[in-house]
């Protein structure tokens, strides 16, 4: 009982602070590569607190949808996080088929941020919304293929199955784990709106994807949206951590923190060393994730045929 309580407490800590820390580490890495000292890694947290204190400015053309979107965003990612093993190593709710709830919670969040953006009536935000919607249509099936095939292989129908991959299926499992982790990493970049898909630091409205959708948001609405999108990155990174970290280790929280730290640094490094892909070519990049998903699917299929599953 104590242990369960402890797990819940550290998971709450993770969801509250790790997203900011992740964003902070990414920024720090970027500063490092460009030869600057950079802001403190707690800066995103300070920014969040600053935004919370600020007043809201709401455009007169908007309706209730616009004000509702940030709340649904944060509620949606919180609900989604119930099914994901965070720092404690086990999910709060190991619901069989939780994958579907998870994916569609994120889908709901996206849907509301899209109509929230379109509610402003700005041509930019409509453009951003259409771009974001396009990418999601490709990312979502790939995500389903990866997770569902791993679940089918291990016979466990919650995210718990990810940790069984390496141990239960031997070298086959490791191969699957590598491809699945890689695909999920691409998903972090796409869903987290990072370079090379999107540029979170740009001020150019015409090139933005995610940023342009929140141009009209301010104050605590903006704070909630940025927090929600950081949590989204953390959730997908947590899935990678679950795949990589050996099952049942007592040091899971430590390994978890290290994994998140490394993922953040890799994201920062990718952002520093690459230019952003041309908008018309982004699909080619996203299709890499789809191809990886198909590889995972076929490997899992062969694995099941050989009886390697859990």
């Amino acid at each position: 009982m104590m242990r369960l309580l402890f797990n819940i407490l550290i998971d709450i800590f993770a969801i509250l602070f790790l997203p900011f820390l992740m964003a902070g580490i990414i920024k720090k890495t970027k500063s490092f590569w460009s030869g600057r000292k950079g802001a403190s890694i707690f800066q995103p947290l300070y920014d969040f607190i600053k935004l919370i204190k600020k007043h809201l400015v709401i455009s007169k053309t908007t309706t209730a949808v616009f004000s509702l979107a940030p709340i649904i965003s944060i509620a949606g990612v919180f609900t989604a996080s119930l099914f994901v093993p965070l720092i404690s190593g086990s999910a709060f709710w190991n619901l069989p088929g939780g994958l579907i709830v998870f994916a569609y919670m994120l889908g709901l969040v996206k849907f509301f941020s899209l109509i929230g953006a379109m509610d402003t009536g700005s041509s930019f935000e409509g453009m951003g919304a259409s771009r974001e919607a396009c990418f999601t249509t490709i990312v979502e099936p790939a995500f389903f293929i990866i997770i569902a095939s791993i679940m089918a292989l291990s016979g466990i129908y919650s995210f718990e199955s990810l940790s069984k991959l390496v141990l239960a299926s031997g070298s086959y499992g490791i191969l699957i784990a590598i491809f699945a982790a890689l695909a999920l990493f691409l998903m972090v970049l796409i869903e987290g709106c990072r370079v090379p898909v999107d540029d979170p630091a740009t001020h150019l409205e015409l090139t933005m994807i995610h940023e342009v959708m929140i141009l009209d948001n301010s104050g605590h609405d903006l704070a909630l949206i940025t927090w929600a999108s950081s949590i989204k990155m953390l959730l997908i990174s947590s899935l990678i951590a679950k795949i990589i970290i050996p099952d049942g280790t007592i040091l899971y929280p430590l390994y978890y923190l290290i994994t998140i730290f490394i993922i953040s640094m890799i994201i920062g490094t990718v952002e520093s060393s690459m230019a952003r892909i041309r908008m018309s070519r982004i699909f080619e990049f996203i299709f890499i994730m789809s191809s990886l998903a198909l590889i995972v699917l076929s490997l899992c299929g062969v694995g099941m045929f050989e009886g390697l599953g859990g």
Binding site: S34, G35, V195, P196, E271, R276
Partner: peptide, 16 residues
């Protein structure tokens, strides 16, 4: 130009 294509290193080196 480097900044516009989100090539961070170029933007900061040329700026300096």
């Amino acid at each position: 130009i480097a900044g516009d294509i989100a090539y961070l290193m170029g933007a900061s080196v040329f700026g300096a």
